[in-house]
Design a protein around this nucleic acid. Structure first.
Lengths: 149, 149
DNA sequence: TGTCAATCATTTACTTGGTGAACGATTGAC
DNA sequence: GTCAATCGTTCACCAAGTAAATGATTGACA
């Protein structure tokens, strides 16, 4: 009876990253839910904040998501008055997205939430353990992300 | 213009765990797809392997998922001949699930795949870095899992 | 012993988050 | 000036999950 082998499975970093990642994502989703935001909304706001104005197609590519999905995400953010959506006068096919004041406020709140979550997650870990984790995550992201060549 | 602040966000362990976790999960899903398995199928097989025979409700609870979803998962695994599904003679409401030989074979293949993925993920990391990551993941899982009190 | 509430698996209808194809307006190459 | 390509939008669809209703079975108990 080869029962013992499976123990090893759940001890791998692969398994741990998958399950812990899902836990963290769910926790984040729960924390931002009262703001009427989903993770993808925050993703768009974050991208927009670091890139400045951008078209929906730009966002779709950066988020790795279909353009038709960006429509729905932007619809929602516009309803929340978090983004402005104006036709690019130089190319009237393009819809240019920009953060509004309200959008920056929401993003700031999400940043606070993330900082709170960060503490929750890393509670009880030493500074060097935290550094090691963040560094390992960067390493793994590089290993898995040949998509970003 | 408070643009610089967002950089910090994407540097947190929270953010990293979320995104890297999703990458790993997707990679795993891609690797098992040729076996006609999804992550939840492997989850059920793994649980079954470590717990021995179990009812569908047991599995639903252990997986944190609705019983009606377990029906579909078990349907599929039964179609693959990976599990046996027999009415418990002592309580004919219960459906007892057990791994078949084929199920153990599939699970063994998934274990190999996980080991392969583990190497892909940790490529270029030292033994102590790997140990630190696995330990940190356990730590985070404990911090987030007061559900398992 | 017979009734009745609870339990397990299942089916069904529904929601959510995602895709891709078709379409309309617009652009730009030629 | 025409015509293919591009951008955003809508639409129909798919996958994965839930919850509620149903049927069979069980067990408590008057």
């Amino acid at each position: 009876m080869a029962v013992v082998k499976n123990v090893a499975l759940t001890e791998t970093a692969a398994f741990g990253l998958g399950t812990v990642g899902a836990l963290v994502a769910q926790r984040f989703a729960d924390l931002i839910a009262p703001l009427d935001l989903k993770p993808k909304h925050v993703g768009l706001l974050t991208l927009l904040s670091s890139s400045g104005a951008a078209s929906q197609l730009d966002m779709a590519r950066a988020m790795g998501v279909a353009p038709s999905l960006v429509v729905r995400i932007a619809d929602h953010l516009e309803r929340l008055a978090a983004i402005d959506r104006v036709r690019d006068p130089d190319d009237r096919r393009r819809q240019t997205l920009t953060l509004t004041k309200r959008g920056r406020e929401l993003l700031a709140t999400c940043t606070e939430i993330t900082e709170y979550l960060e503490e929750e997650i890393l509670d009880g870990m030493s500074a060097s353990e935290r550094r090691a984790l963040r560094s390992a995550l960067r390493h793994v992201a590089e290993n898995l992300g040949p998509a970003t060549d």
